[in-house]
């Protein structure tokens, strides 16, 4: 049981007579159990569109999105989204931001703050409970976003380039944090990035997407996040022969796509 995408296509109509954009063609994908599925690809190959399908913001032009066998009708708390930025509420402090989803679901204050505090601790934000979110660094804001997404105990966590706006150092730390949280919460994750290294390090499954029309061009099964979680330091995982070889192979695929597009 889990999420299943069957033959999903998305065609965006365009105004002023230009041909419609085929953003996704015939996508088949399963995200089950504790899969960490990473979507990698250049801008415009349909990664965000695929995430919108899963989240329920968008319905496919053809095909189906099934969650535990039921078609997805719209957004729901079983599929929480972490955005790249702009998704926190600046009028709320950290605690209230994290508890925001529970509040919308009508959970009484005492219980929602208790749950929120648990995730605040998990993400290392305890000292910042009362802070205004706009005073936090980008990395801490993303942690608030992740904590907020986790509070409603979703089946699938959807992340659209969640680390894209962070500096390199913070980004590596955040990668490790997300892996540890994924490991301790046993969620399915769908994670978008355009960093090859990040994709290889984080995922258990990798889909490499190509543009025009957006499609899944390659699939890989990845061992690296499990190595990290088994205790190998992140830098050592990323410097291993197998990691570097696969990185070059994937880069090759992406570059050849880019060239055929130019």
């Amino acid at each position: 049981m889990g999420l299943e995408i069957r033959d999903a296509s998305v065609i965006y109509p365009t105004a002023d007579g230009r041909p419609p954009v085929e953003a996704l063609r015939q996508i088949n994908l399963e995200i089950v159990d504790d899969d960490f599925v990473v979507a990698l690809g250049a801008s415009g190959c349909g990664k965000s569109t695929l995430l919108s399908l899963i989240a329920g913001f968008l319905s496919p032009s053809s095909g189906a999105i099934l969650l535990d066998g039921e078609p997805v009708q719209g957004p729901g708390a079983d599929r929480a989204v972490v955005f790249q930025k702009h998704a926190l509420m600046p009028w709320l402090n950290v605690l209230d931001n994290v508890a925001f989803g529970l509040k919308l679901q009508g959970v009484p204050a005492a219980r929602r703050y208790e749950t929120a505090r648990g995730f605040i601790r998990l993400l290392g934000l305890t000292d910042f409970e009362g802070a205004r979110v706009y005073n936090l660094s980008g990395g801490m804001q993303q942690r608030v976003g992740i904590a907020r997404a986790l509070t409603c105990d979703p089946k699938v966590l959807l992340m659209d380039e969640p680390l894209g706006a962070l500096d390199a150092l913070t980004r590596e730390k955040a990668q490790e944090l997300i892996l540890n949280i994924w490991h301790s919460t046993h969620k399915s994750v769908f994670f978008i990035t355009h960093s090859v290294e990040e994709a290889l390090f984080m995922g258990t499954k990798l889909i490499v997407m190509s543009p025009r029309p957006g499609r899944i061009a390659h699939r890989f099964d990845l061992p690296f996040s499990r190595q990290f979680l088994a205790g190998t330091p992140a830098r050592q995982v990323k410097a291993s022969r197998a990691f570097i070889d696969l990185r070059e192979e994937v880069l090759e695929i992406i570059f050849s796509d880019e060239e055929s597009a130019i």
């Binding site: 955005f83 679901q105 409603c152």
Partner: peptide, 14 residues
């Protein structure tokens, strides 16, 4: 309101 804020709320079932 940013579209991300609105989408975040809807994805909590608002």
């Amino acid at each position: 309101a940013a579209i991300e804020q609105i989408h975040a709320a809807y994805s909590f079932g608002a």
